[in-house]
Design a protein around this nucleic acid. Structure first.
Lengths: 346, 346
DNA sequence: GAAAATAATGTAAACGTTTACATTGATGTT
DNA sequence: AACATCAATGTAAACGTTTACATTATTTTC
């Protein structure tokens, strides 16, 4: 049985306004009265009805987090960072995944409307412009790793371009020229950025990126595995494989070993994201470090700034730099070594 | 700007009751009227206010999911399973993690109250009896891998005992006698069950489980790593290490290799949960398979059954069996082989 | 000790829905 | 032609809060 504010008021012998004041700790209420009311609240286990409160206050104390997917450690770490940040403010998280489906995104957005005070959207695949229409201007929104030309929203983007470029440069410095990449697919903005970084590293050094070394994955372990199987069907094998996330790198490693090659002595492998797993697999995985939980935290912080009006005006576009986490899955090679023989042009 | 039902009614030239009927698709409304109203709804992008609706209907279309933690693939997979199940019913998920802290559990529960139509609670550490008091009887609750003596709640428990026993038997069949375990800590019910299974396997075969081979971890990769470092400080090294989840197994593998031992030829390693990662690491990890996303799904299904009154009456206690996923991280050994020499008693 | 100022509390409107019941208008029955 | 039936729609109460404003009780001031 649920008690409401009227029950409390009656039992405490005061008006509902007084009970409300006590609960919200706001106005001046005589200490004595407060105690009486609190005692009743305690006794009746009274919790204010969130719907009633939300209705009048237009505040729900919940933040929506819309993710493209829930596979793997990456999203789990995003949720973790966001949940921590949100809990420290007494707020909570409504999580939903869209499976990259515009219909589901729309459904989730409809659901969120009126149910959350702010929204974090991560939708690297679908063009986010459509969302814009449905979203009330008054709702603080942070776009996380989304492609959007709309400058109205706050955005947080990890530097996929810079990270991939840095990693590629590192591999080139290590003597690699035939560097294959396993992408996250052509529609994924993150993957596009990383691919751009990879290609740019080559051209900036006067080398020509080789499209036949670009393989399409989908960020799953299995797709990393399968891409490598594909790679080994080709006549000449690359000396390094750069997977655009750690899951695919792990899948790739498995496949490489099945083909009878050693890592890193025969083939170097590296990943992207630097999920917690990376340092524990063997060989420990060289990866582009992304501060994943911090991404979630930053998004939440940003949203609270808007909510509490500390931040006004134009949208901010935060660019999160990445760093190289160099471990043991990549090896320095002599140019003209083992697997790489007759290839002049990479 | 948000429009409300009155705006729609005015613009459509009908009463709010008619608009409500159209929206809820319920009562008979003349087709012609329905179209007019729908056109206005579409035009105004009208979405009914969830608080107002929740207030009168006492239904929020959200399910709460309270997890102990958000680290690692296990919980991420639970969320995934639950989210899928929930979305198929047009519901959504409010996720919260308690960090195994009773205070936070209580805070989360307070928050959930009135905000969700049902609750899935996973709290393997803290005694769940306290929760009981705060929970309204009318709220469908499913306890997932919780210790509780309270038969009032529906529960779903994975068979940690059976799984661990089966795995231990498998290891014994492979010729292992000195089998170390890395647990999830003494307060964790899951860990306790698994430990009981491990010990039982020994005693049922007339062997004496050796307490000095039981090491305490906390389900993180790092704790698996550190436990192994501890193990290697002892005079005699076990022939097999059974980590009570895959994360710890992965940490263990790293440490074992650092100590210069090969897996599985020198030491066999196995895990528990069979997270998606398990089959991709090398050697692929032998593990006790738990249908993780299905756990989330089952919990949601159960809750919907209650919600839709398909299931009445006494609480159900579902017991989820596990299976052995045998891969390449464990090796058959001759009794009296390599590392195991002078040990008669295990 | 009365008036003025202030503190404490109460009253009632508002928030945006759903829905029982009332009303209207059309159709069928005698 | 009067009445009963039924479909379509409208009216208003209810859900449980917060809060502006009104009222009452208490303290201060002269």
């Amino acid at each position: 049985m649920h008690f409401n504010i009227i029950d409390v008021a009656k039992k405490a012998g005061v008006s509902i306004a007084t009970v409300s004041r006590v609960i919200n700790g706001s106005d001046k209420v005589k200490a004595e009265t407060r105690e009486i009311v609190m005692a009743v609240v305690e006794k009746l286990q009274y919790v204010p009805n969130p719907s009633a409160r939300g209705l009048i206050m237009k505040r729900t104390e919940a933040i929506g987090l819309l993710l493209p997917d829930l596979h793997g450690e990456f999203f789990s770490e995003i949720i973790r960072g966001a949940d921590n940040a949100v809990q420290s403010q007494g707020y909570h998280l409504i999580v939903s995944s869209s499976h990259n489906d515009p219909k589901e995104i729309e459904a989730a957005l409809r659901f969120m409307r009126g149910r959350v005070d702010a929204l974090i959207i991560m939708s690297p695949r679908v063009d986010s412009e459509i969302l814009l229409a449905n979203l009330p201007k008054s709702l603080p929104v942070v776009l996380l790793n989304c492609r959007t030309s709309n400058p109205h929203f706050d955005t947080i983007m990890t530097d996929g371009f810079g990270g991939a470029k840095e990693m590629t440069n590192y591999l080139i410095d290590q003597g690699h020229k035939r560097i294959a990449v396993i992408t996250g697919g052509p529609t994924n903005i993150e993957s596009q950025e990383r691919l751009r970084g990879y290609r740019t590293a080559f051209t900036e050094r006067g080398l020509v990126p080789n499209k036949s070394l670009e393989f399409e994955g989908n960020f799953t372990q299995m797709s990393g595995y399968e891409s490598v199987k594909e790679i080994f069907k080709r006549k000449s094998v690359p000396t390094a494989i750069f997977a655009f996330n750690d899951s695919m790198a792990i899948g790739a490693i498995k496949a490489i070993r099945e083909e009878g090659f050693k890592i890193p002595s025969d083939i170097s492998v590296c990943g992207f994201d630097d999920t917690p797993m990376a340092k524990f697999i063997s060989p420990s995985l060289t990866s582009v470090h992304v501060p994943i939980p911090e991404l979630g935290e930053m998004a939440i912080k940003r949203v609270f700034d808007r909510l509490q009006k500390r931040t006004k005006g134009a949208a901010a576009h935060i660019f999160v730099p990445t760093t190289l986490a160099i471990r043991n899955s990549c090896k320095k090679i002599n140019t003209m070594s083992n697997l790489e023989k007759e290839d002049k042009v990479v």
